[in-house]
Simulated scan of single mutants.
Amino acid sequence: MTVTLITGANKGIGFETARQLVELGHTVYIGARDIERGGKAAAEIGARSVQLDVTDDASVGSALAAIDEAEGHLDVLVHNAGVLETGLDGPAALRSFDTNAVGIVRVTEAALPLLRRSSNPNVVVISSSAGSFWAVTNPERPEFGLPLVLYSASKAAATMLTVQYAKAHPDITFNALEPGTTATDMTAAFGIGRPVEESARVVVRLAALDRNRPTGTLQDEAGELPW
């Protein structure tokens, strides 16, 4: 049985990814800051839940310890938790990077011992082409006109972390993913995005690839992206 942890998975792309992976036979742990919401979401789709706040070291440690005790290993880690700050000041910057970048470090470091016990360890980082230097400087790309300073910068950091983790741990695959613009709570203010089911399928494809998958890349549903 493939054991999968998805952070920030009680709603949006994370929840739909969890639902689709449960259908594929994964034992899925929904990581959620609010234990009640996480538990309710997990019960709805036949998953399991752990209280997990990616900005809190103790919470992250407790969550991975619970999975270790129950399963003894972790096969797939999906870094889905994220925030989109539209303000531009110091506190907003700290929140953006703490969740979108530092959170990746916290959870990855806690998960590494469990991932090393897997025969096919796979880490997927939900990043964004809004953090691609190639995309945001290309007038033909929609990212060129997006005024999302902190989101773009923190997602660029997320992609760089993915590449560096792939280099540091060649026995584990690490890939960053642009799942596609999706209609979620995060994008509600912009009134944009496709159904969450479509973007979750992109995540599931990468999360469920066999051991011949690439590593150290930024991808979207069409393949590898420059960044």
Rank of each mutant, 00 (worst) to 15 (best):
P170V: 01
E143N: 09
P142Y: 07
F174C: 07
A168H: 05
K167A: 14
T173H: 07
Y165E: 04
P195K: 00
A200M: 10
A189T: 05
T182I: 06
A130E: 02
A208S: 15
A208D: 15
A188L: 13
T184Q: 06
S128Y: 00
S154P: 11
P170C: 04
M160H: 09
L146N: 08
F144R: 08
W134S: 13
A176Y: 03
H169I: 12
V203P: 08
P214K: 10
G223T: 00
S127T: 04
G180D: 03
G145Y: 13
I192V: 15
S152D: 05
G191L: 12
W134G: 11
P139H: 02
S199Q: 06
A200Y: 00
I192L: 15
T173F: 03
T162R: 06
Q164R: 09
T182H: 06
G145A: 12
A176C: 14
L206T: 04
S128I: 09
T181W: 15
G131I: 11
E178G: 06
A130H: 11
L218H: 07
V202E: 10
T137I: 03
G180K: 06
I192E: 15
N138M: 02
Y151N: 05
V196R: 02
A176E: 01
G131A: 13
W134P: 08
E178A: 12
A188F: 00
P147H: 01
A158E: 01
S127K: 07
Q164L: 13
E143I: 10
P139A: 12
S199E: 05
G180V: 05
A157I: 09
L177S: 06
V196L: 04
E178W: 01
P195N: 08
V163S: 11
E143R: 04
T182G: 05
A153R: 04
T162M: 11
S129I: 12
G180T: 08
H169R: 11
E178M: 12
P195I: 10
R141Q: 13
V196G: 03
A157E: 00
N212F: 00
T184E: 05
A157D: 06
M160P: 08
F133D: 07
V203R: 13
F144K: 09
T187R: 11
G223Y: 01
Q219D: 15
V196H: 05
L177N: 03
F133L: 14
L218A: 14
A188R: 14
D210Y: 01
Q219H: 12
P179T: 02
T215Y: 08
T217L: 11
S127D: 07
T162W: 00
V204L: 10
L177A: 06
K167Q: 13
A200L: 07
